[in-house]
Structure formats: structure tokens, C-alpha cells
């Protein structure tokens, strides 16, 4: 069989410290505490404890660094000494260093961050903002591509953004006005394909793009939507119910 190349065998000592092992896996050299999203740890060496954010001893840490009740059940704190391997769906994994900065990223794609950073919910549903100084690790479907505003990005291809103002919604009027576009906007046939709606970035900063987001964070998005239902009254809920019913009927016909 050709070529008989043997893979690199890593040990607890030779695994990279706070660096990528491959393009798809990151190794945290833990000595203290890191926040990590559940289900993103594939293996570890050493003496590491995992604790829910709700567990009592973490109250002070959570109060200082984790300001997202919506996502708190998805996160834990890894505590102790050892090497912790992170990976996510075979996606590309990258680490980012913030120096007194801010970066907003798709919630489902954030794997872990140091307590030097504070986590907050973004104004844009499904996104989280990291503020402060420290390192975090995030996954992307395909390598990350950095672009500068002005640019319009398909919501599914948006991984995050740094330093620039939050995006605005952009609707392609001519596309919407077309026969098919009109049918889509009225009945939502076939869902959205992305060509009629983008996120519009302006100003100074950097936008992070990925190839696409697939189902992976539908759960996060749903939870975001559910979280917003709380502010609706009875009439609002009825109207929403009506809209969803009409959309479901259209999907069935499609």
C-alpha cells in the first residue's frame, strides 16, 4: 500500500500548547479555567474538572464573564491542569487573540474562551459578542475568509465581525419584485435563498465569512426566537401563530 507514512503520534507532553493540532482541532494547555461549549471536547489528558455554570462555586466567575442566560445551559467551565482537545463537526478551527477589543461571532461556532474575555449576547439574534483581552477558539465551515466593508453578506455565510458597526438588513428590491421573488415574499415558498436578503456592513472593521452554515446552529436560532416570544402579548402570539400556519401550508404545497 502506498505511501506508508505513519501519522504523528502526540503525547500529553508533545501536544501543542494553545495552538492548532490540525486545521480541525485545537489544544488548550489548561492551567486554571476556560469557558467551553458542551460537546466540543473530543479528548483530554490530565486532571480536568467540568462544571455547569449553574453550580454554586462558579457564581463569581459567571457573574463577571458570562452575560448570556440564553446560552448558559450550553456552556461549562473546564478547570484544572492538562491538555484539552477541542473540535467541532470536522469544521476548520481557529484561535483569535483580542487585545482590549471586541468581536461578534455566531453562537454555535464559538467553542471556548479565556476568562479574560466577557461574553455578551449580540443585538443580532444567534450571535455572541466577546469583549476584553484574551483568546478564544471558533469553528467555521471551510477556512475563514476576512473581508472589509463595504460588503453585503448572506446571513448563512456570516461567521462574525470585529470593530465595525453591527450590520443592517439589506433587501434586493428588484429581486423581490420579480415574479418568483414576489411569490416568495408573500408565501415564503421554499424559504429564503439568500439573494433577496443580506447583511449590509459599512464603516471600518473586518467581516469574517465561512462557506455556509448548515443546520448546526438552528437550535441556537430557535432558542433566540423563543426567547423573544416572551415580549409578545396574546394578539401578537395569535398573529405569529397565523403567520407560521400560512408558512407551513406553503411548505407542504411546495
Amino acid at each position: 500500500m502506498t505511501p506508508p507514512t505513519s501519522p504523528t503520534v502526540y503525547s500529553a507532553a508533545t501536544l501543542p500548547a494553545n495552538d492548532n493540532v490540525t486545521a480541525y482541532a485545537f489544544c488548550v494547555d489548561l492551567d486554571g479555567q476556560w469557558f467551553a461549549q458542551k460537546g466540543k471536547m473530543i479528548a483530554y489528558y490530565g486532571d480536568i474538572r467540568f462544571q455547569a455554570l449553574s453550580s454554586g462555586p462558579l457564581d463569581a466567575l459567571v457573574a463577571a464573564n458570562f452575560h448570556s442566560p440564553l446560552y448558559s445551559q450550553d456552556w461549562i467551565v473546564a478547570q484544572g491542569r492538562g491538555k484539552l482537545l477541542l473540535a467541532d463537526r470536522g469544521f476548520d478551527v481557529n484561535s483569535y487573540d483580542l487585545d482590549d477589543g471586541n468581536l461578534t461571532i455566531r453562537a454555535g461556532n464559538l467553542l471556548a474562551f479565556e476568562p479574560g474575555l466577557e461574553l455578551k449576547q449580540s443585538i443580532i439574534p444567534g450571535f455572541l459578542t466577546l469583549i476584553g483581552t484574551g483568546r478564544f477558539v471558533a469553528a467555521s465551515n471551510g477556512p475563514v475568509h476576512f473581508v472589509e466593508p463595504p460588503i453585503r453578506v448572506d446571513p448563512q455565510a456570516l461567521l462574525g465581525w470585529a470593530d465595525c458597526p453591527s450590520p443592517a438588513h439589506h433587501y434586493d428590491h428588484s429581486y423581490m419584485r420579480g415574479v418568483i421573488g414576489a411569490a416568495r415574499s408573500m408565501f415564503g415558498i421554499g424559504g429564503t435563498s439568500g439573494e433577496e436578503h443580506q447583511f449590509d456592513f459599512t464603516g471600518q472593521g473586518t467581516v469574517l465569512m465561512q462557506s455556509s452554515e448548515v443546520v448546526a446552529d438552528e437550535d441556537a436560532l430557535l432558542r433566540d426566537l423563543e426567547g423573544q416570544i416572551g415580549v409578545l402579548g396574546v394578539s401578537g402570539l395569535q398573529r405569529l401563530h397565523h403567520t407560521i400556519g400560512r408558512r407551513l401550508a406553503a411548505e407542504r404545497q411546495d
Binding site: V153, D154, D172, Y175, V179, I180
Partner: peptide
């Protein structure tokens, strides 16, 4: 996925 400039899309 994204575009810059004045670009039009028509089904």
C-alpha cells in the same frame, strides 16, 4: 455568499 459593488441578481 457575499458581494461588493453594484450587482444585480435576477431569478
Amino acid at each position: 455568499l457575499a458581494y461588493t459593488g453594484r450587482v444585480h441578481f435576477a431569478p
